[in-house]
Nucleic acid binder design. Structure first.
Lengths: 196, 196
DNA sequence: CTGCCGCATTGATGTAGGATAAGAAATGCA
DNA sequence: TGCATTTCTTATCCTACATCAATGCGGCAG
């Protein structure tokens, strides 16, 4: 819970007292590596705030291939907003890539907190807007950039993930095969590119 | 303004009186085919609600290629939310594909309306959530579907646009070249596919 | 009517990345 | 520790789509 409290203090500009009173009702839960927090087809009841560990959300297409939507390291939210908001079955699955502790945030919490604290409401809306910005950016990349550029963008944005996530998952996030990613990396290495 | 009022009544469940009082402060404006409502680099001050006509929003990459983000026919909103919300210069341009009449909706209007009418606030949030759902869906398509599937999805979703929009713009939306789209269509025609 | 321009089509050729297969390296686990 | 499984790499071939270039053709300004 500590990370989440800290996060609220930073981003939502709430006082420690407000935070205590708000979060007293929240549960946290730990999942082992490989466990699922959400299976495709279920309604996503929570937003998961990652205290420690690493999640991924992904879809599976008709041909059985996985496509990673998002990684969730510490201090990130992972959820399927559409499913949670509209109470529809989710297309996503959410899985722990490492042993992961999350705070469970449900819709009732959000509305209670928004009603009680205008700061929280604004914080929440800002998170939505940020999410849109991210999605938009990703669409742009998928429309315009080569595999190599997308990979470079990825390691620029998530340098630590490059080390924590197996490459086939990064490939899946980028929309290419692991073999292609391997080639891209080889090419980059040849031109003496140093990721770290 | 009529379309917008109708839209509010349908989607936001406001009474005609509430709608009148709300919209009295709104301006509408008409743009000629080819005119720009927003140039990349400017801050996007409005959400444009399309009363009549057709808009497109698009980016231009480093190599000078356009990538269409969204089409906006009647009853759609076109804007760059990130730019509008964070008051940052936009990456998008917005252009009228046909002579187009829009209602100009600025941030002040949204907050006034949200404060005055809880229904409006919920309507607005729902629009945001819907937007996220759309973006997510598009990312999924770009990650997993071939040009043909993406095109089929497009005409299923926007059958009327297929007739109003030049094909090179559809190609740009799909992330392929006009030549490729032409070949996809040829292939579909051969297998006796009838769009309408 | 005519010449031009933007758009769509078609063909020839190039290329990024996919599919497949196999081996090497890393990791987990008994 | 050693065996098995997963992950990463490498090589070969293949395919979807891009690029380049030429042709056609409908609108429309003069």
């Amino acid at each position: 819970m500590e990370q989440y409290k800290h996060f609220l203090q930073e981003k939502a500009a709430l006082t420690p007292e407000e935070i205590e009173s708000l979060t007293s009702s929240l549960q946290s839960k730990t999942f082992r590596k490989g466990e699922f927090l959400l299976h495709a087809g279920e309604v996503c009841a929570y937003a998961f705030f990652v205290e420690k560990g690493l999640l991924r959300s992904f879809t599976i297409d008709e041909t059985g291939k996985e496509h990673i939507i998002q990684f969730g390291p510490e201090n990130w939210f992972v959820t399927d907003r559409s499913s949670a908001y509209f109470s529809e079955p989710s297309d996503f699955s959410i899985e722990a890539i490492e042993d992961t502790t999350v705070v469970l945030i449900d819709a009732a919490f959000i509305s209670r907190a928004s009603a009680a604290y205008p700061h929280f409401m604004r914080f929440n809306e800002k998170a939505l807007q940020n999410h849109i910005r991210q999605l938009q950016k990703r669409i742009n990349l998928l429309l315009s950039a080569t595999a190599e550029k997308r990979y470079l963008d990825f390691i620029r944005l998530y340098p630590d993930l490059t080390l924590r996530v197996p490459q086939w998952m990064i490939a899946s996030y980028l929309g290419i095969t692991p073999e292609s990613l391997s080639r891209v990396r080889k090419e980059l290495a040849k031109n003496n590119f140093k990721p770290h």
